[in-house]
Computed example of a mutant assay.
Amino acid sequence: MRFWLIFKILLHPLRWAQDRIDAWVMARVKRQPGPIAITRNRVYILPTRFGYFFALMLLVMLLGAMNYSNSMAFLLTFLLAGIALVCMHHTHANLVSVQLRAGNCEPVFAGETAHFELRIDNPSPTPRYSLAASWPKLEEHAVPGDVAARGSGLFMMSLPAGHRGWLESRVFSVSTEYPLGLFHAWTWAELDMRCLVFPKPAAHGGEPPAAGGHGGLASSDRSGQDEFAGLRSYRRGDTPRSIHWKSLPKLQHPMVKQFAETLEQDLWLDWSALATLDVEARLSQLTRWVLDAEAARRNYGLRLPGTLIPPGRGDAHRFACLKALALYDADAG
Rank of each mutant, 00 (worst) to 15 (best):
H317R: 13
C321Q: 00
C321K: 01
L267G: 02
V290A: 11
L286Y: 02
L286A: 06
Q285R: 15
S272H: 14
L302P: 00
L283Y: 04
Y300P: 01
P311F: 03
G314V: 04
E280R: 06
A320R: 14
D266L: 05
R288F: 11
Q252S: 13
G312K: 02
T276L: 02
A295N: 13
P311A: 09
A316I: 10
K250Q: 15
W268I: 07
L263A: 07
C321N: 02
T287A: 10
T276Y: 01
G312Q: 06
G306Q: 09
R282L: 08
L267S: 04
G312Y: 02
L251R: 14
T276G: 00
H317S: 06
P254A: 15
P311N: 08
R282V: 04
D270M: 07
E294A: 13
W271R: 11
G306I: 07
L291Q: 11
A273R: 07
L322Y: 06
A273N: 01
S272F: 04
A320C: 03
R318H: 10
R298Y: 03
S272K: 11
F259N: 05
I309V: 13
A324S: 12
K323Q: 15
T276M: 12
D278S: 09
R288A: 12
P310K: 06
P254V: 13
F319H: 13
D278P: 08
L267M: 10
E294D: 14
D315N: 10
Q252Y: 00
L263Q: 13
P305Y: 04
P249A: 15
A275P: 01
G306D: 01
P254Y: 10
L267T: 04
D266F: 00
M255R: 15
R303C: 10
L267H: 01
Q265M: 09
N299S: 10
V256S: 14
L291H: 10
P311R: 08
D270Q: 12
H253I: 06
A281D: 15
P254L: 13
P305Q: 08
L302I: 03
A296W: 03
A281C: 07
D270V: 09
G312T: 05
P249Q: 12
L304W: 05
G301Q: 07
R318N: 02
D278V: 09
D270T: 06
D292M: 08
G314I: 01
G314W: 02
T307H: 14
L308P: 00
R297P: 01
E264K: 02
L251Q: 15
L283H: 05
S272N: 15
C321D: 00
H253K: 14
L291V: 08
L308C: 09
E280K: 05
E294P: 02
R282T: 10
A316D: 15
L269G: 05
M255Y: 13
S272P: 00
L263Y: 04
V290C: 15
E264Q: 13
A295Y: 08
A281R: 12
R313P: 00
Q265K: 12
D270A: 14
W268A: 08
T262I: 15
K250W: 07
L263K: 12
E294R: 02
H317W: 02
Q258E: 15
A295K: 14
F259H: 09
T276D: 14
